[in-house]
């Protein structure tokens, strides 16, 4: 007894409960919400850090400002409490802080007694320039090295990934010192003290870019070698494409995807790495601001930098997502 079913209306099979938003819009909204949550979390963490400072905050502020530890009179404390709103309940302080952040107000420095944004904005340009140059340099170095060495003979491959591993593990301070000793003190090609000129940025940027290139290179190399053996690459070879062409036109696009993902994180890491490098090359930037602030417990400045870096990270990651969908259009709908 053979039983058959007449074919049913096709729309019953692909049940029609259409989502309200188109997948693309939905995805963008989700990303923006997630970014806002991370920013809010970062702001909260920054606020908690200020609360967590041991001892009476008004006393600490006065001590930080005068640079000496001593007992303060109630009058002195009252004026500070009023200035920083410390007499308010914690919740009110928190709302004030978050509200201030929304208006672009990062708080007031304990030490310098002026808005944190003012202090940071004077220095942030130099650091952002260094970060941008570093990223570009790291990408160029990484792509050049990986394309040159990945998927070659055993020895070249070992050399390629060996260099990746070694450079990825180089501490920036040590690499910076070596570059300084060789190219500035030894050969005299670059100035010892950074400054803001074009030749002053080369060594600091290299110091940050080389380990970053090694780090991204490890991820890119794995993907590069995987792609090189993929069937679609064999198809391209069968079409008569040359090896270099294949590497540049097909493989690279697949291989850089992990490094693109890493770049969002790398921007944050480079800004914080800049602290060390700026100190080493005596370059202007938020590095010196931050080190002084940490040393003197000037917390509003420290948290201000932290919040700004977190915000940069969030924005960078949104851009990375965008770049990702451009490179891999399949991601657009998933």
């Amino acid at each position: 007894m053979t039983r058959t079913l007449s074919s049913r209306p096709a729309d019953a099979a692909t049940a029609a409960r259409r989502p309200i938003l188109s997948p693309r819009v939905r995805r963008i909204v989700e990303k923006l919400v997630a970014a806002a949550v991370v920013l809010w979390g970062a702001a909260t963490a920054a606020f908690l850090a200020q609360i967590a400072l041991p001892g009476d905050r008004a006393t600490t502020i006065l001590n930080v400002r005068s640079g000496q530890t001593q007992l303060r009179t109630p009058e002195e404390l009252a004026s500070i409490n009023a200035e920083y709103g410390l007499q308010n309940p914690i919740l009110v302080q928190y709302l004030d802080y978050v509200g201030g952040l929304l208006r672009g107000d990062l708080g007031v420095s304990y030490q310098q007694h002026r808005p944190v944004w003012g202090i940071i904005s004077e220095q942030v340009g130099a650091t952002l320039t260094l970060t941008a140059v570093t990223l570009v340099l790291a990408w160029v170095l990484m792509i050049f090295w990986v394309t040159l060495t990945a998927g070659r003979g055993t020895k070249i491959r070992a050399l390629g990934s060996g260099v990746d591993t070694v450079t990825a593990g180089l501490p920036p301070y040590w690499l910076g010192i070596l570059l300084l000793l060789v190219f500035a003190l030894g050969l005299g090609w670059f100035p010892v003290i950074g400054g803001t000129g074009v030749d002053g940025i080369v060594l600091p940027a290299l110091t940050l870019a080389i380990p970053l290139a090694g780090f991204m290179g490890q991820a890119t190399r794995t993907e590069f070698e995987r792609s090189l053996t993929a069937p679609f690459i064999i198809t391209a070879r069968m079409r008569g494409m040359s090896d270099l062409n294949i590497r540049l036109r097909h493989v690279l696009r697949h291989a850089i995807l992990p490094a693109v993902t890493l770049s969002g994180w790398a921007i944050g890491a480079t800004i914080s790495g800049a602290v060390i490098v700026e100190s080493l090359f005596t370059r202007p930037g938020i590095g010196s601001v931050l080190i002084t602030a940490v040393d003197s417990q000037d917390l509003p400045v420290v948290t201000g930098v932290v919040v700004l870096v977190a915000a940069t990270y969030v924005v960078a990651n949104l851009l990375v997502d965008l770049a990702y969908t451009v490179i891999d259009p399949r991601m657009r709908n998933s």
Partner: peptide
Amino acid sequence: SPKRWRSIRGRRIGFILQDALVSLDPL
């Protein structure tokens, strides 16, 4: 020579691999 090979591949000998989902560049 590699160059001569490339002029033969695709022009005089075509090659079809399995499943196009992986045999054509997915991007």
